[in-house]
Design a protein around this nucleic acid. Structure first.
Lengths: 179, 179
DNA sequence: GTAGTTGCTTCGATGGTCAAACTAATCAAA
DNA sequence: TTTGATTAGTTTGACCATCGAAGCAACTAC
């Protein structure tokens, strides 16, 4: 509390160390999720990108447009087309022309696809959920506040984060809604 | 299965909501870094994977073995070979046979490569560093504690997290790194 | 030395990704 | 209504990343 830096801030060694540690922690979080996403997809017989398509579709009640997918995944529509092609060819989803706007196509999960995404065991998330639940009430609140602060610091506010990471099952009621 | 829990802790609706929010915040953080890493690499005229090689090499004093790279990046050695091939062909690094163990090869950054990674403008990290520095002392401490807790919750402790994101010689302006 | 191990590369195959060009449907304005 | 602009989606062609398996070279142990 010795220094409230705002503009011309004097960075002490302690400051740098703490900043550094926080970045390393962030890096670990990123790395853990990255590595797990591969195992996760692989154990489901899918690639990470393909699994993500299914996960996003699931959060949209099992039906999305390629446009939405492209936006949420941060890739081009051309890429989405390729991904959907493979998913469709494996019988995990079907393309259905929209009635209201015939330019649009709905990518709709089949029963097989729904099962596939439902059975993907997300060890990472399960571990997180378990650990989160063990925390004291005030600890949970603080953790949430910190995470949201970091998200804000990274300018991630405007990102339309689909609760893709929130693979139901572990929570009972459909709440969230996000935004 | 909505109420699975370790102890006899009863999960209220509030608990679930908070868990969900924390997951969404996490997802946003991941997504922000993912999106920015592409811009970052592209602005440096590199692919994300190639930039990562350079970044890791930098943290190792400009010289790493393919083995180390494979471990740190979580990919196979075959992949590393392909990446290093491209980096070498662009003059960003050179392969140097190790003297002590002639099986090993050191991937050593050239001046060009060192410059390239140094000049990679990391908008994301810069923003984070800036925001972090504006926080009060206790806020920084709390944020760090929370991040490290999350990393631990994801069991990311055992991961040899390369301080790629580190700010080591950072004195006034943040530079490099991120993914 | 011989056998096993380790570090690295090569090869072949699969996937993800994009920009640009293209089709089809909708919308807006004259 | 016709025309022009916009939007959704696909196709094409070209890279890049990634892996497993096979192969090679060097080290290690006995």
């Amino acid at each position: 509390m010795s220094r409230l830096c705002n503009n011309d801030q004097i960075m002490t060694q302690l400051d740098l160390h703490r900043l550094d540690d926080s970045l390393i922690a962030l890096r670990r979080i990123l790395r853990a999720t990255e590595l797990y996403s591969r195992d996760l997809a692989q154990s489901a017989g899918l690639t990470p990108a393909q699994l993500r398509v299914l996960q996003i579709a699931k959060t949209k009640d099992g039906s999305v447009t390629p446009k939405e997918l492209a936006t949420q995944m941060g890739v081009s529509q051309a890429t989405v087309t390729a991904l959907v092609d493979k998913i469709v060819s494996r019988g995990l989803a079907v393309r259905v022309r929209s009635e209201t706007d015939r330019r649009q196509t709905n990518v709709t999960l089949t029963q097989t696809g729904t099962d596939a995404v439902a059975q993907a065991p997300d060890a990472l998330q399960q571990r997180y959920v378990k650990a989160f639940m063990k925390l004291q009430d005030w600890e949970q609140a603080q953790l949430l506040a910190s995470l949201e602060r970091v998200a804000a610091m990274l300018n991630a506010d405007d990102i339309d984060a689909a609760p893709v990471l929130t693979t139901g099952e572990l929570k009972g009621t459909p709440e969230s809604a996000a935004e």
